[in-house]
Design a protein around this nucleic acid. Structure first.
Length: 514
DNA sequence: TCTTCCACGTT
DNA sequence: GAACGTGGAAG
């Protein structure tokens, strides 16, 4: 890896002082304000124009098939104070209004043109998808420049550097640090040279500068010039404004040199988490709502995909206590029976401001946020031994308790698929994933009563898109030999919260038994 | 957690 | 109409 990058290195005595926030914070009156956004640590003020840190930026040659790509040495940036949000505040809306839309340095000002969108995403914790073949950013970096020398040539380069030295995971409803960051390519990362580079200052200032062509990848062997990042790590884009030294005639493929006149502009609100699959459902929704390419997923009434889902859902609502609809392939293995099973859903934790109102954290009503968001994830209880009563783990005690009022759930079939069979595992996995992936909603942890020997696994989820029925609760659980599914209607949505203690589950429910 | 494929959308 | 950009489902 080092050798590969070495081929792009050029020796330069230039000091590269702007691979930090100093270039933007020093002369930005907004940044100089004490009311600094949480993502901009005060220690950044300690950096300055005369930093001895040296760096180089080179553009890849055409022969390397990396057109538009540059390399930036970020090794010194690691010794700089990192621009870090504490993990608990990533995606928070603290001081969002303080994020500057304009940064000025050495008389050059850069405006983040789509600042409002970035701020919206940032308030939820922006995520960017990485794919092997490369994925565009959304939002992407779009700037307006002023204060450049109209006649001088400039290269505009975007680099994306780690925001911190952590690796994260999505846990329930927030990002958590899980350990140190993966090795970050030995201090060298790629940068993306704008496809118009170099251009006269007047030309750059004449319109918007968009880096929509930039793509992110997790393929460390990428040869297409995409920016290589690690999933589950935080990054932040930086715009480098690099004057072409007088007398230098730029030719395609020639390395771009970061000289002492170079400037770097970093907008804290463009900080993002690299992922391979969206973790936060709110981010997915923002992407769908703002990205024109994702229009097909919008719930605007003209979407055939969602219309189909809605129709099915409404059908289920009408069925109420009728059997859950399964795919034809699954129906062949199913016979039907009526089981007198009543469930009472009972919240165990109450953290509502109003202690009288049982409140499941993170489940919020449509009227509160404009959307229903489910948050806690998964619920699967596996018995350690067959026929062994299940005990609640501390984690599960945070969630629901599901207590059958009757005990007539004894399996009746003796010819069920063995739990250990591939077919069983496959079906179980498929169903589990289907639920887990259902429209990006997350699972509420749940458990079964220790008295229910035949319900070792239980799944509970709300279907928020069915707001017209005010909350529909699906319950699916698996015994060691059988799998039950049923559909329950809760009708328990308040304006702000969903209170499960008032859930009334319909009496005897028809259940499919495998 | 990641990859591949897909339907559906924009460019 | 081709190429490309999307998020989701499935594996």
């Amino acid at each position: 890896c080092t050798c590969f990058y070495d081929s792009f290195w050029i020796d330069s005595a230039f000091h590269f002082c702007s691979l930090s926030y100093c270039s933007t914070t020093l002369s930005s009156p907004v940044e100089a304000s004490p009311a600094k956004p949480a993502v901009t640590p005060s220690s950044l003020e300690g950096t300055n124009e005369t930093s001895p840190a040296t760096s180089h930026i080179t553009s890849a040659s055409d022969s390397q098939r990396l057109a538009g790509t540059s390399l930036v040495n970020i090794s010194q940036s690691q010794s700089l104070p990192s621009c870090v949000l504490p993990s608990t505040t990533f995606g928070s809306s603290v001081l969002e209004s303080d994020f500057p839309a304009v940064l000025t340095f050495k008389g050059v000002s850069v405006t983040l043109e789509n600042n409002s969108v970035w701020k919206q995403f940032h308030s939820c914790g922006t995520e960017m998808i990485l794919t092997k073949q490369g994925r565009r950013m959304f939002p992407y970096c779009r700037y307006r420049l002023a204060g450049l020398d109209p006649e001088r040539l400039y290269n505009l380069v975007l680099s994306i550097v780690p925001s911190d030295q952590n690796r994260y995971r999505w846990s329930t409803s927030r990002w958590e640090v899980t350990g140190p960051a993966e090795h970050q390519t030995q201090g060298l990362i790629r940068a993306f040279s704008h496809h118009y580079s170099p251009c006269k200052g007047s030309e750059w200032m004449g319109g918007l500068v968009s880096f929509y062509k930039l793509k992110l990848t997790n393929n460390a062997q990428d040869q297409d010039g995409h920016i290589i990042l690690h999933s589950m790590h935080r990054y932040i884009p930086r715009l480098h404004v690099i004057p072409v030294p007088d007398g230098v005639v730029y030719t395609s493929g020639q390395p771009v040199v970061m000289g002492p006149e170079s400037m770097t502009f970093t907008f804290p609100q463009t900080d993002f988490m690299a992922v391979t699959t969206y973790q936060n459902f709110r981010i997915t929704q923002l992407k769908i709502n703002h990205n024109p390419f994702a229009k097909g997923f919008r719930e605007d009434g003209n979407n055939s995909r969602l219309n189909r889902v809605t129709t099915e859902a409404q059908h289920l609502v009408k069925m109420e206590t009728q059997p859950f609809v399964l795919k034809p392939a699954e129906l062949t293995e199913i016979k039907e029976e009526v089981v007198d099973l009543r469930l009472v859903l009972k919240p165990i934790m109450s953290t509502s401001a109003n202690k009288d109102e049982p409140y499941v954290p993170c489940i919020r009503g449509k009227h509160a946020l404009g959307e229903l968001v489910l948050v806690q994830k998964r619920l699967c209880v596996e018995p350690k031994e067959e026929n062994h009563p299940i005990s609640l783990t501390p984690e599960l005690q945070q969630g629901f308790s599901v207590i059958p009022e009757t005990t007539s759930t004894t399996p009746t079939s003796t010819t069920s698929t063995p739990r250990s069979s591939p077919g069983y595992r496959r079906r179980r996995k498929r169903i589990s994933r289907r639920w887990a992936n259902s429209r990006g909603r997350e699972w509420k942890a749940a458990s079964v009563s220790p008295t229910v020997v035949h319900s070792p696994s239980l799944t509970v989820a709300m279907q928020p898109e069915l707001d017209d029925v005010e909350g529909l609760l699906f319950v699916s659980f698996t015994t060691k030999v059988k799998q039950y599914k049923l559909l329950l209607c809760t009708r328990c949505v308040s304006k702000e919260f969903i209170s499960f203690n008032r859930c009334v589950v319909p009496p005897p429910v028809v259940i499919h038994v495998k």
